[in-house]
Simulated assay, not measured.
Amino acid sequence: MGIIRAATNWDTFYPDLIVGAVTGIAVGLVLLSAQAFTQWRRSRADSKFAWASLKPTVSGAAHRSWNQDFDSLLPLPLSLTGLSEIASSSPLALWQSHMRKQDPALEYLLVISRLRPQFESCASELESAFSTESLPFMRQTWMDRGGLGRIIRTRAYGGQDSEVYPTLLVASAAQLTEYSAAADHLVSLPRIEAAMARYREVADIFLTALTTLRKNLEADGSVLPAP
């Protein structure tokens, strides 16, 4: 019995092998690209849903009032701490990157959350400046250091001295005027003046961002305006 041997066409073997390998790689790349695109679309949908679900909680935190303490610039505004805590527990930057069209409310939430360290630092700086710089003055006056501190903090909040006049232990309107004059002197001291300016700046940025965040949450129709 004769043995039939299959002839191998070596002239086409290597070209066919190369074509097969290239084809396999191309098909693999197409499949990987399709899988990546599907995963990206799913991630984008998940991010949009997660952000939409979080908006009512964000709105609740954004509408918390700022109970300004005239005896200390700390703690921080409740809305600031609440929003920063929400931001720290959610992948906001990832959600933002998945948005086809940027959501202004999400952008301003990120702005506010990043302000917290700066706000806290500026508040502490002003408290420290007043504590240190007021010592020489307090040795020469009859006025109460706590009362002067209230006036300084009222100005830091952007208020009027008269807002804290009822809390000062004075016997006449003239003494109230002396308190305000003393506050004028203290805030003119370089260290307090600089600290006051930095605090007012970050507070203004926060309030502007907070107001814009509230408006955007209400404008998109998913969150009702605060009563």
Rank of each mutant, 00 (worst) to 15 (best):
G2D: 13
I3C: 14
I4S: 08
A7K: 15
N9C: 07
W10N: 15
P15E: 05
P15V: 02
P15F: 07
D16M: 06
I18K: 00
V19R: 09
A21S: 08
T23M: 11
I25T: 06
G28A: 01
V30F: 02
V30G: 04
L31S: 07
L32H: 09
L32S: 09
S33P: 06
A34Q: 06
Q35G: 07
T38N: 10
W40P: 03
R42G: 03
S43K: 09
R44V: 01
D46T: 13
D46Y: 13
W51M: 12
W51L: 15
A52I: 14
S53A: 13
L54R: 10
P56F: 15
S59Y: 03
G60V: 00
H63S: 03
S65K: 04
W66H: 03
D69C: 00
D71K: 15
L73W: 04
L73T: 09
L73V: 12
L76Q: 07
L78I: 02
S79F: 04
L80Y: 15
T81G: 04
L83T: 03
S84I: 08
I86G: 06
A87F: 00
A87R: 10
S90F: 13
L92F: 11
L92S: 12
L94S: 07
R100C: 05
D103C: 14
D103W: 04
P104I: 02
L106V: 10
L106W: 08
E107I: 08
L115I: 09
R116V: 14
P117H: 05
F119V: 04
E120M: 14
S124R: 05
S131L: 14
S134R: 02
S134V: 09
P136Q: 08
P136V: 13
M138W: 07
R139S: 12
T141G: 03
M143E: 02
M143G: 01
R145K: 10
R145M: 07
G146P: 01
L148G: 04
G149A: 14
I151K: 00
T154Y: 04
Y157C: 02
Y157D: 00
G158V: 08
G158K: 07
G159N: 08
Q160F: 12
Q160K: 14
S162L: 14
V164M: 00
V164H: 07
P166Q: 11
V170D: 01
L176G: 11
T177V: 15
Y179H: 08
S180R: 10
A182K: 12
A183G: 09
A183P: 01
D184V: 09
S188F: 05
L189R: 11
E193N: 11
A194K: 14
A195F: 02
R198F: 01
R198T: 04
D204A: 13
F206W: 04
L207M: 11
A209Y: 05
L210N: 06
L210C: 02
L213E: 00
R214T: 05
K215Q: 14
D220C: 11
A226R: 12
P227L: 08
